[in-house]
Design a protein around this nucleic acid. Structure first.
Lengths: 253, 253
DNA sequence: AGGGTAAGAGTCGTGTCGACTAGAACTCCC
DNA sequence: GGGAGTTCTAGTCGACACGACTCTTACCCT
């Protein structure tokens, strides 16, 4: 059946019985903040192509599951983590991206708070947390077009930080304002004044809710910080705007 | 699909020779502003399933083209338009979304300035410009999961309006500030003060560049407006922020 | 006990932005 | 042709957001 179906308004090549077959995969860019730097979870490939190179974990979508479910399943299989924030950010289907066949991949990013064994669900020797600056700076070669996918994921997270509740996904159920601030600083690569950050986040009820408990100070001492949990206002965007090209005072300092 | 491949670090079901086959399509949400309201280009389906219902134009991706190229080709086939702003915003692969087979669609939106025969490339009787409020408000039933896709597209354009140069794609190569302002008002559904809008856009060099020519006033008369063209600063985001929940003056008025 | 450190409270000044007013430039109609 | 109506353009005012900065509080360590 052919390109001449008596079907006005529908593309002529729209033929349900004859279509190019693709493999559909989901790739999950797992991000976390460790030592005040943004890290990504990568796996080392054990088979060609790109054998020995690092890659973003992923796998085939199954016909009976949604894309979101496939991403959630892959995240569980690769990291043993459930219930993390998962967001789709792009699809990639360049003809030569997988030399073996036609593959279209739908990319997600997942944000985790740092846990001890983040790659507990998979072979630990073949998975590792890598600083994003390494993976994008050329120190590490990524398989397929995964460098581009990672770059897009990081860019998306940067934008989402100001627009969604993704910042709270980097931290645990309770957190200090310094912890939350370090998320913004790591992802945006900026320095934020602690007092001003505090004012912004506490300016309105609903961003964070004090728990009454306090965190233990670090080894360096200092006043113990209040522990907060995330409020409900994050549904409507975050409390911080991306610091625009330093509209700072010109004369001073 | 051998779940026991001797391959550590790679998902166990990663077998290039056996994988579920999917059809991959691209759908293009064509948006424009007409009569100060956001409109979407829809086509009427002539065959089952969803015969007679409106749908977002789209078609199969070919193995030898990228997703972007497929979207550009579909846009050309459906509207006869080339060189429009095209951006990918989502992928949709729910199991039952096409009753005939497993289809994963990658969705793009394209923004056009209003032209007379916007659907010149396809059968005009089966394509039409519909107000987005109709298509999303229930007045019109959309085929497949296209209502969700359209909703996501509009939401993405709303966000992109503040973050990208998409606003200038709604207008022609030269435009008045009132035309540009009406884009923001139509997409965001807000009223913007003309003088303040002017100040924001002209506050910095690079957003818009005066051409020296003036537009002819409308039928109602009025001072003829200066014609501008888009500058280069839009690469770094738009000059306007989305008006947050009326932080307007409380006491005054 | 005292110094070091980080949390938390508060001040100051500047820039942004909405609301508003007034003038300029044009069309339409009588 | 002159007034009314409309739109563009310029400018003012006040509220508020935000960066920079200072000071106090509360804990750790020696």
């Amino acid at each position: 059946m052919s390109t001449r179906t008596p079907d006005p308004g529908v593309p002529p090549d729209y033929d349900p019985s004859q279509f190019p077959a693709f493999a559909v995969t989901v790739d999950v860019v797992v991000l976390t903040v460790r030592d005040a730097r943004l890290h990504v979870l990568l796996v080392r490939r054990g088979v060609p192509p790109f054998e020995g190179m690092w890659a973003i974990p992923g796998g085939f979508k199954r016909p009976e599951e949604t894309l979101d479910e496939a991403a959630r399943r892959e995240l569980l299989e690769e990291t043993g983590v459930e219930g993390a924030s998962l967001r789709q950010f792009g699809a990639y289907g360049d003809p030569g991206r997988d030399p073996r066949m036609n593959v279209v991949t739908v990319a997600y990013f997942a944000v985790l708070r740092e846990v001890d064994r983040i790659a507990g669900g998979t072979d630990a020797a073949a998975a590792g947390l890598v600083p994003v600056s390494y993976a994008l700076g050329g120190e590490i070669q990524l398989a397929f077009d995964h460098a581009r996918i990672l770059r897009d994921a990081v860019e998306r997270v940067r934008v989402d930080l100001a627009l969604t509740d993704v910042a709270t996904s980097f931290v645990g159920p309770t957190f200090t304002l310094a912890e939350l601030r370090s998320v913004y600083e790591a992802v945006w690569g900026v320095h934020l004044d602690g007092a001003n950050f505090r004012r912004s986040v506490l300016s309105e009820e609903g961003w964070v809710v004090p728990t009454g408990r306090r965190a233990r100070p670090g080894a360096a001492g200092g006043k113990p910080a209040e522990l907060y949990r995330a409020g409900r206002m994050w549904q409507h965007g975050g409390p911080l705007r991306y610091p625009q090209a330093t509209p700072t005072t010109r004369g001073t300092r």
